[in-house]
């Protein structure tokens, strides 16, 4: 029996803590609880209002069991068509613009000035919320789906260019070099050395973005940028829960269908 064994036998064993320093560990825990208490304390709850709301909540849940597609069917139909039109057009335009910007934002194929400009565009697009962009664009271009179309296109650029650029930066260097070695020009090089490597993921991401754009298009109507959001907002304002439930169900079904289709397409291209 070794000496060390004799030393440890009979001693308690504890799992070594994640943070070794005991004071830091305690400080973090205390800090966390203090924050939690302070944060919860800032929530002013009007319990009477909540209690009254429970009935309405129940009504709303019941409305999901009997959604009313009919009484506002024209509004719902027009709003949905507008949402889908905006989504499709903005996705196509956004993807088309994202590809050159994504190429430019990849450090391994773009020269530095181009890289900085493209990264700047990506950063601005990602930092601005869709709804804020929509507010500004509605102020500039007036109410209607054009503002929504531009908003979604702009948001698509930030999302897709960034991921495309990251994908290009992490691609297999050797394959691209082999094409370069054959004496190709820049466009041929992109077409043969880069495109085949990133295409499957680009298609997958585009499908995913189409899905996001549709979900986002549902809120643009709240600020007047077209789509189903306006109809939904009206339904909430008038407490027409059955109509609101019908719209929400439609959104969920369309998102599910889009996810299903994009699953099939992604499986096919990969």
């Amino acid at each position: 029996m070794s000496v060390e064994l004799n030393n440890v036998l009979g001693t308690r064993w504890r799992k070594p803590p994640l943070i070794q320093r005991a004071w830091l560990r305690r400080l973090l825990w205390i800090g966390f609880f203090v924050y939690l208490v302070a944060a919860v304390a800032t929530i002013e709850v009007n319990w009477l209002r909540v209690y009254e709301g429970l009935d309405r909540g129940l009504l709303f849940i019941l409305a999901f069991a009997s959604p009313d597609f009919l009484s506002r069917s024209t509004d719902i139909w027009n709003g949905m068509v507008e949402s889908i039109v905006m989504t499709v057009a903005a996705s196509v335009a956004g993807i088309a613009i994202s590809i050159p910007i994504g190429l430019g934002a990849a450090r391994n194929i773009a020269p530095l000035p181009v890289y900085l400009i493209c990264r700047g565009i990506v950063a601005i697009s990602r930092a601005l919320q869709e709804i804020i962009v929509a507010i500004l664009l509605v102020a500039i271009f007036g109410f209607g789906p054009l503002a929504g179309f531009l908003t979604l296109s702009f948001a698509t650029i930030g999302f897709l260019s960034k991921l495309l650029a990251e994908d290009i930066e992490s691609m297999d260097r050797v394959q691209a070099e082999a094409i370069k070695a054959s004496g190709s020009n820049w466009l041929q090089w992109i077409n043969y050395g880069v495109q085949p490597q990133v295409m499957p993921r680009l298609i997958g991401l585009s499908m995913y973005r189409l899905d996001i754009n549709f979900r986002e298009s549902a809120i643009l109507g709240l600020v007047g940028a077209g789509g189903i959001g306006a109809t939904l907002n009206t339904a909430f304002d008038r407490y027409e829960y059955d109509t609101a439930a019908a719209i929400l169900i439609l959104i969920i079904v369309i998102v599910m269908a889009l996810e299903y289709i994009s699953g099939i397409i992604r499986a096919r291209v990969q």
Partner: peptide, 28 residues
Amino acid sequence: IVSSRSINSLIWALLLIAIIGPGILSGV
């Protein structure tokens, strides 16, 4: 999962405001 994901937080907020009134609680 799909219902929660499909609907934007702004719409959830609209819905909750209609039910329990405006305020931080609805936001949370």
